[in-house]
């Protein structure tokens, strides 16, 4: 939670992309860099009022991001009007995802709130009421790539809320989904997670180089301009599909240009996240490849001396499923 009269100015310094003009009632994806230009964390920030943002982080980074923001607030910009407090524990938040997500929520959210695609479009956020008057928050954000919402209620009602959602969803055959399923869906979408934000990668590597605004002062912006981080053949996040669909594309494997010797000097990159994709009916993966964005369609050699894998994979876009994001906006 980030409040205060200059909270937008503050978030503009914390995130490398622009936040100053985010409209009230809207959420935006934000990328935080360390001062050395390496990606630190990503998440969304929703603007519930002119002076009130809800900042989300990777779950495991919540404490370290708050620490980083407190450092910026107290040590770097001590006279900005911004107040921070953790609200992680205060809300129980559920993702409701899939083509019937809106229909399900309409049974739970109080009728005075308009959930239509026009009334509550992709990336909207709002204070709402549910189940006959309970205060709640709704965010139309999606990590899974589906039409999705995240709904938050006071923690003491979290248990009752999930029961309510499951009951309301019975007619749509709703199922609980865990992080394993989410992990597959986010790879199919090419969404970065901890494996990609691994402490060595920049916005450029993630394919978000253009997001780093040069019109403002943000942490990490200047040092991300270092020569070594901007080389012509910098690693770029891409997708991989096995040439023989029976083969896996295991994470940790290294990538070699066909015909090159298999040694560190010729290393072209590595696989970060892999899964079997039920949508594509084969194993898929995302990872970093030198000049990867310019090599789509190339067949390269995947090697893993540790496990003995040695076969060819095709370089593809990391966005395997719904690359235009039509499901999100449905």
């Amino acid at each position: 939670m980030c409040k205060g009269l200059t909270s937008a100015t503050f978030l503009n310094k914390i995130y490398c992309n622009a936040f100053g003009k985010l409209a009230v009632g809207k959420t935006r994806y934000g990328l935080m860099l360390r001062e050395d230009g390496i990606a630190m964390d990503d998440g969304t920030a929703g603007r519930l009022a002119e002076d009130h943002f809800v900042v989300t982080t990777t779950t495991a980074n919540a404490a370290s991001v708050l620490r980083h923001m407190e450092f910026a607030r107290q040590c770097l910009w001590p006279d900005l009007d911004v107040q921070l407090i953790s609200t992680t524990e205060a809300w129980a938040q559920y993702a409701v995802a899939g083509p019937n997500a809106r229909k399900l929520l309409e049974k739970v959210v109080d009728p005075e709130f308009d959930l239509s695609n026009e009334g509550f479009p992709f990336m909207a956020c709002s204070n709402i009421k549910v189940c006959g008057g309970l205060r709640a928050r709704l965010f139309r954000i999606s990590f899974s790539g589906e039409l999705a919402y995240e709904i938050a209620v006071p923690t003491r009602y979290g248990d009752a809320m999930i029961r309510e959602l499951m009951q309301a969803g019975e007619e749509f055959e709703v199922v609980p989904y865990g992080t394993e399923a989410l992990g597959v869906m986010r790879i199919e979408k090419g969404h970065a997670a901890g494996n990609e934000l691994n402490g060595t990668t920049t916005a450029l590597n993630l394919g978000m180089g253009k997001m780093v605004s040069k019109k403002k002062d943000s942490i990490g912006s200047i040092l991300s301009e270092r020569e070594g981080l901007k080389s012509e053949d910098a690693l770029k996040l891409v997708g991989f599909k096995p040439v023989d669909p029976k083969n896996p594309v295991p994470a940790g494997s290294h990538l070699m240009t066909l015909g090159d010797p298999v040694d560190a000097a010729h290393d072209q990159g590595y696989v970060t996240s892999a899964c079997y994709s039920p949508s594509l009916k084969c194993s898929i993966a995302i990872g970093y490849l030198k000049s990867g964005d310019a090599r789509k369609g190339e067949i390269i050699r995947l090697v893993s001396p540790l496990t003995g894998f040695d076969h060819n994979v095709e370089v593809v876009s990391a966005h395997f499923v719904d690359p235009e994001g039509e499901r999100l906006r449905a």
């Binding site: 409040k3 009130h52 107040q83 407090i85 953790s86 609200t87 992680t88 524990e89 809300w91 006071p154």
Partner: peptide
């Protein structure tokens, strides 16, 4: 003059 945050369920 102050930022107030609901914390009833945080603790």
């Amino acid at each position: 003059k102050a930022s107030v945050t609901e914390q009833s369920d945080g603790w």
